[in-house]
Amino acid sequence: MAEIIGVIERLWRYPVKSTGGERLDSVLVDERGLTGDRLYAVRDGSGRLGSGKNTRRFRRMDGLLRLSSRLGHRLDRPELLDPLGRPLPDPDTFLRAFLQREDVELAREDGVSHFDSLAVSVLTTATLDWVREAAPSAIVDERRFRPNIVLRTPPGTPPFIEDTWFGHEGRTESEDGARLTFSHSSERCAMTTAAQPGLPHAPEILKALAQEHDNRLDALAAVRRPGRLRLGDSITLF
Rank of each mutant, 00 (worst) to 15 (best):
T193Q: 14
R146Y: 12
R56C: 07
E79M: 11
E31I: 08
F238L: 13
E204D: 15
L180Y: 03
A219Q: 02
V131L: 15
R56N: 10
C189Q: 09
L80A: 02
A221Q: 07
R70L: 12
D37T: 00
A221K: 06
E105D: 09
S185K: 02
G36N: 01
L128N: 00
N215L: 14
G50C: 01
T55M: 07
P226G: 07
E79G: 02
A195N: 08
M61D: 07
F160H: 05
R216E: 10
D141S: 10
T181Q: 04
E133D: 14
Y40E: 03
A134S: 12
A221H: 07
D116G: 04
R101M: 13
P147A: 04
A210Q: 15
I161D: 00
L231W: 03
P87H: 01
D110E: 15
D129C: 00
R59H: 13
R171E: 09
G167N: 05
V27C: 06
G6C: 02
E212S: 15
A202L: 10
T55R: 06
T172S: 12
G47S: 06
L206N: 10
H73L: 15
T181Y: 13
E187H: 07
R43T: 10
F160E: 01
P197H: 15
E169K: 08
P158Q: 04
D25L: 10
D92M: 02
L24H: 07
L24E: 09
